[in-house]
Design a protein around this nucleic acid. Structure first.
Lengths: 259, 259
DNA sequence: CGGGCTTTTGAGCCAAATCAAAAATAGTGG
DNA sequence: CCACTATTTTTGATTTGGCTCAAAAGCCCG
């Protein structure tokens, strides 16, 4: 279980540092704006379609996911939200939610009053920019998912999903030598990849038998990341994780940088 | 051909009025910020993956589209940009483009220097909010497309695409009794729907034979919108086009409102 | 009127869906 | 700690939606 006081700030810091430099005071202000830290059971709806939330939610521990359910009952997962991710930074502008968000695993969720976020953003351009960045990266991920569903086979989609989650969790230091938390069922994975649950199972077996991944309990091990990346045609550029000044490792970069 | 001076402002006005009230001065400021209005041929790349654009592009006439191309040559269209849509409002925050944008038809494109947009947004909260709204609606469309590719059949996808385009063009007053401009080839439609060109053709025939659509030349007629909406399970909520105070037509709404 | 797109058709094939049932796991309460 | 459920995973058999390859027909436009 997370200790709100000592762990909240580091999580926000790790995440937002990816957007660029951020002053300590800005981080403090954001940390203090988190009015509640709730412990939420697995499979709990945090925000439902049609809601007009008064709080911005931040995932601090555990996994949550965006999703939509069609009239015929089909469900599509739209995004996975991992520690450091904001759930609904900008709903206020749109008015009401056009999708729902729920936890998969038991999670710790921070809540910031919507108006306080707006106020903070107005006070600090750097913080505003960092929150923007977080929001735009989520949009970039959405675009890549569209490519995933539109133009990759089941194997490619799954491999891509694993690579992305690995990269995202690694960026907030939640990967211990290739092993990451993976509290999903195969049915939930299926709804993320746009394939059936049965086919998800069979596709998974292919990746397993090829020695690419191991999935035991709620732990996922990417046993052969290069193989997965190749299979997935994975290019992490869209995650915008590398410092903006150093993209593509140009020859004039300092040797050893970012190793 | 568009007359920059007399038509630019109305296009921006129609689009941004959907976000809520906007003062005349704000619109003027934005209009004046458009430094260039370019006439661009069909099939021209406006911004490429990896670019760091100095201008924000606005479509004034014609259609453009976002897309990504995979190493194996597969292409996925990520979004269609129609008159009033901004192409790259916020790339500055992310640094570089993770996808490309090109025209399909001959188009008129307005260009606003990136720093001027930022400055305008800082000066006018209302304008800032309107631009935000435009950006977030594009994200909402992206989410719905994910549902489309993940959980609808080819027929449903195509019907949904037609319904969406109709709604979007109608919102900027570009639909004349069910007929809309549709300058795509079937191959481009295929890359939008995540299906093959051949299957696109056959799916189209099904919709045509069912009397749902007519597509001749570059004009598309939705002959049976209700039928299309049903087939597509189309719910326009995600476009966030209705005034925020009046969602779902509650019983206390004035009779005849929004007819 | 000819050459390059775009659309259409045909035939065969394959990836993934569906339906159904068995095996394995994970919880839960006694 | 074990029996009893409920969920999750796995397997099998069959069907189908959509893909590929290839060629023909239709268009547009100089």
């Amino acid at each position: 279980m997370l200790d709100p006081v000592t762990k909240l700030r580091p999580i926000l810091a790790r995440k937002l540092s990816l957007a660029g430099e951020l002053a300590g005071e800005d981080l403090d202000a954001l940390t203090w704006a988190v009015k509640q830290v709730r412990r939420v059971p697995a499979h709990t709806v945090l925000i439902d379609e049609g809601d007009r939330p008064e709080y911005v939610h931040v995932v601090l521990e555990g996994f949550a996911f965006r999703y939509k359910v069609l009239p015929d009952g089909e469900r599509q997962v739209l995004a996975w939200l991992v520690p450091g991710d904001f759930c609904d930074l900008h709903v206020a502008v749109l008015g009401e939610m056009d999708h729902a968000i729920a936890t998969v695993s038991e999670s710790t969720i921070g809540q910031i009053p919507t108006d306080q976020v707006e106020q903070l953003a107005q006070t600090s351009p750097a913080l505003s920019r960092a929150l923007w960045w977080a929001s735009l990266v989520q949009e970039a991920i959405l675009r890549e998912w569209l490519v995933n569903l539109g133009r990759r086979t089941a194997e490619g989609r799954m491999a891509h999903f694993f690579c992305e989650l690995h990269a995202r969790l690694a960026s907030v230091e939640l990967v211990g030598d290739g092993a990451l938390d993976f509290p999903l069922t195969q049915a939930e994975l299926a709804d993320s990849l746009g394939i059936s649950a049965v086919h998800t199972n069979r596709t998974l077996q292919v990746l397993r038998d090829a020695g690419l991944v191991q999935w035991t309990g709620r732990k996922l091990v990417l046993a052969n990341i290069d193989g997965l990346r190749k299979l997935a045609q994975f290019d992490p550029n869209y995650l915008h994780l590398q410092p903006r000044s150093r993209r593509g490792n140009p020859s004039n970069a300092a040797p050893g940088a970012f190793v």
